[in-house]
Simulated assay, not measured.
Amino acid sequence: MRELEATLGVSRRVVSGLIGAGFVTPSRGARGEYRFTFQDVVLLRTALQLRAARIPPRKIILALSQLRAALPDELPLTGIRVSAVGSDVVVKTGPSQWDAITGQLLLDFEVAQVKGDVVFLETAPGGKDAAHQAEEWYELGDQLRTSDVNGAEQAYKKAIALSPKPHYAAYVDLGALLCEVGSRCEDALTVFDEALSHFPEDAVLHFNRAIALEELARFDDAERAYRRCLQLDPKYADAHHNLAILLETRGDRQGLLRHLSAYRRLTT
Rank of each mutant, 00 (worst) to 15 (best):
residue 86 G to F: 04
residue 42 V to E: 05
residue 82 V to G: 02
residue 63 A to F: 05
residue 97 Q to C: 10
residue 58 R to W: 15
residue 46 T to Q: 11
residue 37 T to Q: 01
residue 59 K to P: 12
residue 16 S to H: 12
residue 19 I to E: 13
residue 78 T to G: 15
residue 99 D to Q: 11
residue 20 G to V: 08
residue 12 R to C: 06
residue 6 A to G: 00
residue 66 Q to A: 05
residue 74 E to K: 10
residue 84 A to N: 01
residue 7 T to W: 10
residue 74 E to P: 11
residue 47 A to Y: 02
residue 76 P to F: 05
residue 35 R to D: 01
residue 13 R to D: 10
residue 62 L to N: 02
residue 57 P to C: 02
residue 41 V to L: 11
residue 77 L to P: 12
residue 82 V to W: 00
residue 75 L to C: 06
residue 88 D to R: 02
residue 85 V to L: 13
residue 55 I to Y: 11
residue 8 L to T: 03
residue 2 R to T: 14
residue 38 F to C: 09
residue 83 S to M: 13
residue 46 T to D: 00
residue 48 L to H: 09
residue 56 P to I: 05
residue 64 L to P: 08
residue 9 G to H: 08
residue 23 F to C: 09
residue 21 A to P: 13
residue 18 L to M: 06
residue 90 V to N: 10
residue 55 I to Q: 06
residue 85 V to A: 11
residue 5 E to W: 05
residue 67 L to A: 03
residue 42 V to L: 07
residue 65 S to V: 12
residue 88 D to H: 09
residue 97 Q to E: 09
residue 49 Q to P: 11
residue 91 V to D: 03
residue 73 D to A: 10
residue 41 V to I: 07
residue 7 T to P: 07
residue 67 L to I: 15
residue 65 S to C: 09
residue 13 R to A: 15
residue 89 V to K: 06
residue 2 R to C: 14
residue 87 S to K: 05
residue 47 A to N: 01
residue 92 K to A: 10
residue 100 A to F: 01
residue 96 S to P: 12
residue 48 L to M: 14
